[in-house]
Nucleic acid binder design. Structure first.
Length: 596
RNA sequence: GGUCCCGUAGCUCAGCUGGAUAGAGCAACAGCCUUCUAAGCUGUGGGCCAUUGGUUCGAAUCCAAUCGGGAUCACCA
């Protein structure tokens, strides 16, 4: 039973009896007592002083005196100004701990499934260039939110909508055709997505040169951008693609195949996966019928030039074109179509989450508004999981200026640094090569993932490569290390941990009680994290837990404890801690090693 | 210009459904390894929570304005 809920109702009852106030238990807000004061929970009494017709201190006293009588778990209280701090008994926390430690999947597995099905879209790459740091944040965020939502008993369908067509794809195709002499990933040893990305960059170089030449011959910049021969060729290629020209389609399939092979490697390294893939080449025509439907319902209107728009000025938004004058669809047209398709295909889903950067906040506002106007009541269950940009110390990432941080390079660099640091520590000398490689990868990726996930997704973040490699302080490796230490202690303890029964006569020390209280919070943290789509809540919580363990470790020798009951209790306590650390980290998609 | 987001220690970030003396980590300095893994622990210094006003017993937190930073406002995606 939830302690706060239980306490709230007790306090509510006391207040009603004392002051004749009609409060409900929901109105009673308890907070955890700050470290500097004695007690477990705190009630702020300011709101009741009027009804009590007494000073804040007196009010606290009056309430405090009643509490132990109502609830034997409450043993003592103290009043500081308008704050009533009270303590729960040793027995109470001990029995809470027993129940926490008996649940192998404490917090991460709800008693029963909610029956709710959620679709979560993330990643959504373009097939003309490799993944970069921004994608890394997207992937880590999407994956961890999906995992955290699962802990609430919901079923999550992870989907990826690949942007595999359009003018930008044709750019890399054309450049490859013109300049590559038939290079392939096999012939060059390059990862497929990198090879294609190379020609996307190549296109831009040639394009800029052509523009320059045209400008020098007296053409305006704007005209030059339109007239550049390579751009004209690209547009021609797009038309051929749309006309299903066999050569173009084959080249497109071939190059996209290379990219998918490359992405598969990156996704595997990142540890993310998907239940279903969507491709824009299949979805880009969707949504046109929806536009006709909306036109018939007078939600949309036709302009003289034939384009179709919606007027959202009454909603504080602007007008938005939903179909071009030539009858082709725009970005939002296919998003409308795709959303409707998905709810048809998966009739059970009750929520649709889009993991997309915050530069598209406006787009999603419009999208959801249009869906609502079209009469789909699930529109209110659509959520834009918006995240801030990743910036570098030297400023924003610009793909054209080559200041992007490539995802593969980044991951390899992190793993390499983990390797150097670990080998320098000399702790892995008896590991096999395979074990070492596994460990370096776990630590390097743990550092990267934690560094990104510990900050609130909504906020833009600064990625300092030097700092991200740090393994000290509030970092993934710090937490992994705490876990490895616990495992090391448990290995030395030969008895079967499962068989330990905890004596009722244990008197909890301060650090032990703190650890139990922190453990007790785990399910609440997951619920909060799932409700706010914020993995950072879990990340910062796990860090606190690991830190508490380190402090405990420093103060109390577990194995050297002579009292058998206490020793067994401590073994169990840190075993539970390691489980929560592990489960919490797995919710973030971060592995924890058994030893390091 | 309209709309939206953000301004907390030198740096990176917590805290924001209003509550006690605003917290961590990094960096700096000083301690702790013959004792279960020192990737650790302890301590010191470091703050007009952008500014001003409002709401109230009480504001980093809510509201307004101002200043600074960013995003967006395409028949691009």
């Amino acid at each position: 039973m939830n302690i706060e809920h239980f306490l709230s109702s007790t306090i509510s009852q006391v207040i009603n009896e004392l002051f004749d106030l009609s409060t409900v238990s929901n109105d009673i807000i308890l907070q955890k007592t700050k470290k500097e004061f004695e007690g477990d929970f705190t009630l702020v009494t300011f709101p009741y002083i009027k009804a009590a017709k007494a000073t804040p201190e007196k009010t606290g006293e009056l309430i405090g005196e009643q509490l132990p009588k109502k609830n034997s778990s409450i043993t003592k209280f103290n009043v500081v100004k308008g704050f009533l701090n009270f303590s729960l008994s040793n027995d109470f926390w001990l029995s809470e701990f027993k129940s926490i430690s008996s649940e192998a999947e404490y917090g991460i597995k709800p008693a029963n499934s909610s029956g709710k099905q959620v679709m979560l879209e993330y990643s959504s790459p373009n097939t003309n260039k490799p993944l970069h740091l921004g994608h890394v944040r997207n992937n880590l965020l999407g994956y961890s939110v999906a995992t955290i939502i699962k802990t609430q008993g919901h079923e999550v369908i992870k989907v990826n909508l690949v942007n595999d067509r359009g003018i930008h794809i044709c750019k890399s195709m054309l450049a490859w055709k013109l300049f590559s002499n038939g290079e392939t990933p096999q012939s060059t040893g390059l990862k497929g997505d990198h090879l294609v990305g190379k020609y996307y960059v190549e296109f831009d170089k040639v394009y800029k040169k052509e523009i320059q030449t045209l400008i020098e011959s007296g053409v305006t910049k704007e005209e030059a951008e339109k007239q550049a021969p390579i751009m004209l060729q690209t547009q021609e290629m797009l038309l051929k693609w749309e006309a299903n020209d066999p050569d173009t389609i084959n080249l497109w399939k071939r190059m996209n195949g290379w990219v998918y092979d490359g992405f598969a490697v990156s996704y595997k390294k990142l540890g993310v996966d998907f239940d279903k893939m969507y491709y824009e080449s299949n979805t880009y025509l969707l949504g046109k019928e929806v536009v006709q439907e909306g036109l018939a319902k007078n939600i949309f209107y036709k302009k003289e030039n034939g384009s179709i728009s919606i007027d959202l000025t009454n909603e504080g938004l602007d007008e938005k074109v939903v179909l071009r004058s030539d009858g082709t669809s725009v970005y939002i047209t296919q998003d409308l179509g795709t959303a409707i398709e998905r709810f048809k295909e998966f009739p059970k889903i009750s929520q649709m989450i889009y993991t997309v950067g915050n530069e598209q906040d406006y787009h999603f506002k419009v999208l959801f508004k249009i869906l609502a106007k079209l009469g789909y009541d699930w529109a209110k269950e659509c959520y834009h999981l918006s995240y801030g940009m990743v910036e570098l110390p030297e400023g924003k990432m610009k793909s054209r200026e080559g200041t992007v941080v490539d995802a593969d390079d980044l991951m390899d660099g992190m793993i390499e640094t983990a390797k150097e640091t670990t080998e320098a520590s000399g702790k892995v000398s008896e590991f096999t090569q395979e074990e070492k490689d596994q460990l370096f990868s776990t630590i390097g990726m743990g550092a990267l993932k934690y560094f990104i996930l510990k900050v609130d997704p909504k906020k833009k973040m600064l990625f300092d490569p030097k700092e991200s490699i740090d393994l000290h302080g509030n970092t993934g490796p710090f937490i992994q290390y705490a876990h490895a230490r616990i495992k090391s202690i448990l290995r030395d303890y030969e008895e079967n941990i499962e068989s330990i029964s905890i004596s009722d006569s244990i008197t909890l020390h301060e650090k032990e009680k703190e650890l139990i209280k922190q453990q007790y919070d785990f399910p609440k943290i997951l619920t909060e994290s799932a409700a706010t789509y914020n993995p950072a809540v879990v990340a910062n919580y796990i860090y606190e837990l690991a830190k508490l363990f380190n402090q405990f470790y420093n103060e109390c020798s577990v194995l050297k404890e002579s009292n058998a009951d206490i020793k067994q209790f401590r073994i169990k306590l840190i075993e539970t801690t390691s489980r929560i650390i592990k489960n919490g980290m797995l919710c973030l998609g971060i592995e924890v090693p058994e030893r390091m």
